[in-house]
């Protein structure tokens, strides 16, 4: 299967730094921000963004993870999905500005599930969405607030995000099925 790398490690770092700045800018500082990554890779990206933001703003930025498995609308299809832990920072999310972080934004169904999951955990003042890659093909009225890279792709293609912490190497690529002209 042909694979084409679209973001190198340095590109990813730059994109995350830019997102960090954008979040701080739109929020006028780090006040009240809670970053929640969606497992698996969204959690890692959220942690990196939080670290960058803490550096810039010189205050700690709370971050955690939000598992959406139990809120998915396709649980009865495909294989059994094993849930991951949800970790909410000690201050909770009531009244906070929660920034959801995911690696790839696609149909929007994961984010829909994440919004439902959030609703069961508390009442944030606002919810924002950050994604490393937006590949389009939305099936729900959901749009990101912060995007690393827009990556128009065919629905037959697969976006492959690899991060050092879990994959050993780091890049983003597009994998096309054999014989697909894209």
């Amino acid at each position: 299967m042909p694979e084409r790398v679209v973001l190198q490690q340095a590109d990813i770092a730059r994109a995350l730094t830019r997102i960090s700045h954008e979040i701080l800018e739109s929020n006028r500082g780090a006040d009240g921000i809670v970053l929640l990554g969606i497992p698996t890779r969204g959690v890692l990206l959220g942690r990196r963004i939080a670290a960058t933001m803490s550096q810039i703003a010189a205050v700690p930025v709370p971050h955690g993870s939000l598992d959406v498995t139990m809120y998915r609308d396709d649980l009865s299809r495909g294989r059994i999905r094993t849930p991951s832990p949800t970790q909410i920072p000690p201050g909770g999310i009531d009244g906070a500005v929660v920034v959801l972080v995911d690696d790839v934004l696609y149909s929007g169904r994961t984010i829909r599930a994440a919004l439902d999951a959030l609703g069961d955990l508390g009442r944030p003042r606002a919810v924002r969405l950050a994604a490393l890659v937006d590949r389009g093909h939305r099936e729900l009225p959901i749009r990101p607030d912060f995007v690393g890279k827009n990556l128009p792709s065919s629905q037959h293609e697969r976006i492959n995000v690899r991060l050092t912490e879990v994959d050993g190497d780091e890049y983003v690529s597009i994998v096309s099925p054999e014989g697909d002209p894209a």
Partner: peptide, 21 residues
């Protein structure tokens, strides 16, 4: 047992309910 750990976390929340089933 691992999935049960995740389920146990839910029992500590204010809303002790998941829409999974």
């Amino acid at each position: 047992l691992d999935v049960a750990e995740d389920m146990a976390d839910v029992s500590t929340r204010e809303i002790k309910k998941l829409p999974a089933l």
